[in-house]
Computed example of a mutant assay.
Amino acid sequence: MNYKIHNLADVQTDKIGDNTMIWQFCVVLKNATIGNNCNINCNVFIENDVIIGNNVTIKPGVQVWDGVTLEDNVFIGPNVTFTNDLIPRSKQYPLEFSKTLVKKGASIGANSTIIAGNIIGENSLIGAGSVVTKDIPAHTVWFGNPARHTGYITLEGTILDLNMVDKEGISYQFQNHELLKK
């Protein structure tokens, strides 16, 4: 067990990978799973039916509810809101919560809201303050409320317009599920 938990955190799970840090005022319930080399910043709540992969960063003020899976190398910005109940009512619970999957390498900007039941594709980028209401394809950039497709992003983080051209005028194309220069 080579992980660190701040003494002001309430961590009930023992399924935590090596080199993971959980900061103060976090609450992690007993059935959650957290991978290696993660950074769970202060004031984060992680419920039971949650799987967090390796090398994940979760910034302050995030709640990760039952049914959410974050794959490897995911970045979750401050105050991102996940939902898991499409028809919430006080003291009434669904038989099963909707599942949300954030695929490897995806980044979700600060104050975004992710509506339950959606898949955020590999290496996609959700801009700050966006509301995701549908599945997001891999390597795409989305902004707004509701979030709209505004471009593409390479593995190196180069933003492309809808024509797959970067700000220098260089064109890209998909090759083997990756965006590469033409």
Rank of each mutant, 00 (worst) to 15 (best):
D10Q: 10
T13C: 05
D14Y: 14
K15I: 08
I16D: 13
G17N: 14
D18M: 09
N19F: 15
M21D: 00
I22V: 15
I22L: 15
W23Y: 15
W23F: 12
Q24V: 05
Q24P: 03
F25L: 15
C26L: 09
V27C: 06
V27F: 08
K30I: 01
I34S: 04
I34K: 02
G35E: 02
N37P: 06
N37V: 00
C38Y: 02
N39M: 01
N39P: 07
N39V: 03
I40W: 07
N41Y: 12
C42N: 14
C42T: 15
C42G: 13
I46P: 10
I46D: 07
E47N: 05
E47V: 00
N48L: 06
N48R: 05
N48T: 08
D49Q: 15
V50W: 09
V50H: 13
I51W: 02
I52A: 05
I52S: 02
G53I: 06
G53Y: 00
N54K: 10
N54E: 11
N54D: 14
V56N: 03
T57H: 11
I58N: 03
K59G: 01
P60D: 00
P60N: 00
P60F: 03
Q63T: 12
Q63K: 09
W65T: 02
L70Q: 00
L70D: 00
D72K: 09
D72M: 08
F75E: 04
F75N: 11
G77R: 01
G77Y: 01
P78E: 04
N79F: 09
V80A: 08
T83E: 12
T83A: 13
N84G: 10
D85E: 09
L86H: 04
L86S: 12
I87A: 08
S90L: 06
K91E: 07
Q92W: 00
Q92S: 03
L95K: 14
F97D: 09
S98H: 07
K99Y: 03
T100R: 15
L101E: 04
L101G: 07
V102T: 03
A106F: 08
S107C: 06
I108F: 04
I108N: 00
I108E: 01
G109P: 09
S112T: 05
T113P: 08
T113L: 09
I114Q: 05
N118E: 06
G121S: 08
S124L: 10
L125T: 04
I126V: 15
G129K: 10
G129L: 13
S130C: 11
V132N: 11
T133E: 14
